[in-house]
Amino acid sequence: MTRNEFLDALCATNSKLALIALNNLCRGLKLRLIPKSSFQQFLDECVAILDTELPTVDDTDKPEALVRCLRRFTSRASVMRGCARLALEACEVIPVITVLRTREFFYEEPQRTHEIYETRKGKIDSPEELRSALANWSSSRPSWHFGKDRDFFWVAPLGDLPPPFDQPQASGYVDPLAAQSHRDQLGLSHYGRSDGPLLRAIISPDDGQAALTFYRPTAYDGLDNPAFRAACDDETLETTPAHGRTVVLPAVKSRLQNVDGTREWICPSQEVPWEYIAFDFLGELDDSPCAEDERFHAAMLAVLSRKIPCDVVAAELGAYAQNA
């Protein structure tokens, strides 16, 4: 299989998830956020995997296998592929937030779960329980390891969120819209009711202490998120900033012209001392993830197609796939 055969076969699947990812790759290449050589290397890896794996796959599974091959690799992809752009604008000290599931937060802490007579997948149901848990944790370890399981984590500036979420929460108070608002503003399409309560960590490094390294995310980082957009509509080759921008999920669903959310970056995983972190309890979401909703995929594709129509994506990417 050649690179172009792979791209053609992928487009022929008519998978919206694949088209979203391809559209983002195309936009990233046009804006030189992704070097052509890295894209070709990415395609070669896909082709190599398919050459090995496809012979064992049934014909009926082949379209799905092609899509999966495209979307399989996201872990700190930009950084590892050498195409990350260090986000100098974020080197100033600004409080950033990252959203976590409470389940993630207490991963591998059986002692804690037993102490409150909880089940293994127990939940933190209130700000009070979060406070007690934090008191317990901070006494037993000096820091929290962000992005431990994924090699990286996503952050957004606290100040970019709409009020009242642009400030730390008042003690003990949980805005009933907090979880929904964060999910929508940050484009967290994969979060839903089944994820349980969410938390946000506000990280405020002090004068370089525990400073995070910020990178602009690229299409590689968002391959598995149908709500990822490689660049805003108004970005040009001359005006690409050193940050990504989330899409506002309800704006996408409503097919609004402006879907821009907050600035966002990825940071390589890092231990951050407790004194630079404040946790807020966000509560639970009340619906399913839109990452699994075909109507959302169609709406997102419509947003992306405003810049690059679907029918030209394959041809444009085909040109980038050529060596010469």
């Binding site: 296998a65 999966r68 399989r72 399981d149 090699d151």
Partner: peptide, 15 residues
Amino acid sequence: RGARLSFGQRGAHRT
């Protein structure tokens, strides 16, 4: 072995 197109599809946080 054989899991390259089956595992890791629902987000990198999946162990």
